[in-house]
């Protein structure tokens, strides 16, 4: 029974929830649509949870990491929607969830053979994966907060009357959400990458020109620059939001790069 739950099941549920949330914006708010969206989202999360538990994620390779990150974001969607019923939470979180799920599905279709991790290094490989996944969740939350921030900032710059259009949290709250998310994510990423680098150095075919290593290094540099801009140069607001979005894009690229270019990386937990 449980094996019959596929990625398509929860992707479809999230899709329906997103459609209903979008209708809330286009056709005006209605309580039944809100409840229907919540039900669809909850059904998707249930199926997603069963899938995650049944397949023993997130330790089964790159696609499973994306599915695990999207699972955490789906929880973030449901909790946020229940907590802020008047805000257009789902319109921002669900597309990210869907993109991650679809990316995972595409990767699974072209998954390279995963070389087994030597038994004595298993713990470090596990820690490497977990740290990167947690960092990815943080950056994904930062990305969602940044998109919301830019929409809210646009609304205010264009003097949209309060109460009209998409309802969002205040700029200050969104900025804090983004700042906290990336501040937590960076050390987790850094620790995960250091462990990953140490593991790679043990591999005989490892080279610094490996595309996975290059993109991950670039991602880390962009992320570090982002934090320097925030805390060193006190850059805030729009520029910070754009920086987070760029970092998120590179993170996604780091996830999928080994499926585009051949890599010596054993398709672990994340970038």
């Amino acid at each position: 029974m449980l094996e019959r739950i596929t990625i398509l099941c929860f992707a479809a549920s999230y899709g329906v929830a997103l459609l209903l949330e979008a209708m809330q914006l286009l056709l005006g708010r209605s309580e039944w649509r809100r409840l229907a969206a919540l039900l669809a989202g909850a059904a998707g999360l249930f199926a997603h949870t069963v899938y995650v538990v049944y397949h023993g994620l997130p330790m089964q390779g790159g696609p499973s990491s994306l599915l695990f990150v999207s699972w955490v974001l789906a929880i973030f969607y449901l909790v946020g929607t229940l907590h802020h019923p008047r805000l257009a939470w789902g319109v921002f979180v669900l597309p990210v969830v869907l993109v991650l799920v679809v990316a995972a599905k595409l990767i699974i279709a072209s998954e390279p053979t995963i070389p087994p991790t030597p038994e004595n290094l298993w713990f470090w490989a596990w820690l490497h994966a977990v740290l990167l996944i947690l960092g990815s969740v943080g950056l994904s939350v930062g990305f969602v907060a940044s998109v919301m921030f830019l929409v809210q900032a646009w609304k205010l710059k264009h003097k949209t009357p309060p109460g009209e259009g998409i309802q969002l949290l205040s700029l200050e709250r969104l900025e804090v959400m983004n700042r906290r998310a990336i501040t937590w994510a960076f050390p987790l990423f850094t620790a995960g990458l250091v462990i990953g680098l140490a593991l790679l150095l043990n591999q005989e075919d490892f080279t610094l020109t490996d595309p996975k290593v290059i993109v991950t290094g670039l991602f880390w540099a962009v992320f570090a620059l982002l934090l320097y801009l925030r805390y060193g140069l006190h850059i805030q607001g729009r520029r910070m939001a754009l920086g987070t979005m760029i970092a998120f894009g590179i993170m996604l690229l780091a996830y999928v790069v080994q499926y585009i270019w051949p890599s010596a990386h054993p398709s672990g937990g994340g970038p």
Partner: peptide, 11 residues
């Protein structure tokens, strides 16, 4: 109205 605008900027 002015105060409502401010609440969209600051928390």
């Amino acid at each position: 109205l002015a105060v409502d605008y401010l609440k969209q900027v600051f928390d």
